[in-house]
Design a protein around this nucleic acid. Structure first.
Lengths: 221, 221
DNA sequence: TTATTACTGTACGATAGCGTTTAGTAAATG
DNA sequence: CATTTACTAAACGCTATCGTACAGTAATAA
């Protein structure tokens, strides 16, 4: 299973070396992808089918096929696009430096509001649904999402540790613990539809308490 | 949305007041449910369809319909059965009393090995897939699963707090933090197929480190 | 202009799955 | 016995969706 280019919004077809005839219309390409994304995230994966996509994007069905090959290719493209949006959002996480505690809290709040968003939840549901069929998609998103976030957080903890704000510790583990405390059982609940989306207040509280537990547990001796 | 009896393996049909004619065969009922469960957990939800269930359980398709009404009813029955298995497993969690730390570790190990099991992961995937269609299923499993576990764990923390082993704290929050630390980003990874199933060693380490962080953070002053 | 490619709209073939029907057999009660 | 209900096997109708074919139009390069 080669992760094909592991790249951008992905036009597996429609890249005819920019040669002779009429060039493919990038506007249509985007319209299809957008419509697919909308349908994809507007409920179940059932909602995403070729005819509906064609209708919603104001494009002929044949065009959809010629741009994305088949349904699987379209789904792949949607997931990859969502993944790149996601990594972009994670890159935009705040990196203020006004004290370790506040920095962690800011980061946690931004992250948790992202993790509670409908888009993220929908993406996770899709991956859960696709797991077993297109494993590499899940792997990809997991690496660029959860693992990358953990490692980025871990890097901050290492810095803090070097500054003497924290005792020596396994920072990847600690980062994961912090992420876990922030999420608690909420991610599970959101995913299965068992619990409602928390408000900002609730999130802030979770984040602060998690940070405080971590800081106390890893406080320099 | 009345959660119908919220009960056992559920025979919505096939309960004709035990009257006149030939009685329904409970063996077939169980066979259908088992086959459905097998198919349900052997990959995607796609694998669970009426014809396959009938074939796999060695029963006529009509019998499946007469026992479970329709496909939705069958899915419901399977999820409810899995839920009752799950709550049973959670009831069997160890409750040894040889010190708070060891008790938490034992509980954590048992719980994590359950949360990493194929059955649990498959169930979560199903709920994620069904979310938006049969919300109440997700709610049910979430209440009896995650929330119940959190509350049970919280009860132990309250006891420990009363004994003076921990400082005063919000025990539900603390329980959730501990659960979160145990899981880290692993549950996410397992669900999306992004990370492999961890071995017992790995789990034990996670559990112990989580317990230690919690005990240190909430240590009596 | 001509060749080439993109796009449209409609229609088609194929498959899969749901749920029902029918005709007949099997097991229970009165 | 007769009646009632459960079960089987095969077939049917229905709908949804995938993916393709065809005939025609639009845009671009040589």
């Amino acid at each position: 299973m080669p992760t094909p280019e592991a790249g951008t919004s992905g036009a597996p077809e429609a890249q005819r070396a920019a040669g002779r005839g009429r060039p493919p219309d990038p506007v249509k390409h985007a319209a299809i992808l957008d419509a697919a994304r909308r349908l994809f995230f507007s409920g179940s994966i059932q909602a995403l089918n070729m005819e509906a996509v064609a209708r919603a994007s104001g494009v002929s069905k044949v065009t959809v096929y010629s741009h994305f090959g088949d349904l699987q290719g379209l789904i792949r493209a949607v997931v990859l696009r969502q993944r790149s949006d996601m990594t972009a959002a994670l890159d935009d996480l705040p990196s203020a430096q006004c004290g370790l505690r506040q920095a962690l809290i800011d980061l946690g709040c931004a992250l948790m509001s992202f993790l509670s968003s409908d888009d993220y939840v929908a993406l996770q549901r899709m991956l859960a649904t696709l797991a077993g069929k297109e494993t590499w998609l899940g792997t990809l998103v997991y690496r660029d999402g959860a693992e990358a976030t953990r490692d980025r957080l871990a890097a901050r903890l290492v810095e803090a540790s070097a500054r003497g704000d924290l005792r020596a510790h396994d920072s990847r583990l600690a980062a994961e613990q912090l992420l876990g405390m922030w999420q608690g059982i909420q991610t599970t609940g959101l995913l299965s539809g068992g619990c409602p989306r928390p408000d900002a207040e609730e999130l802030r509280c979770r984040v602060e308490c998690g940070v405080d537990v971590l800081l106390r547990a890893y406080a320099p001796e």
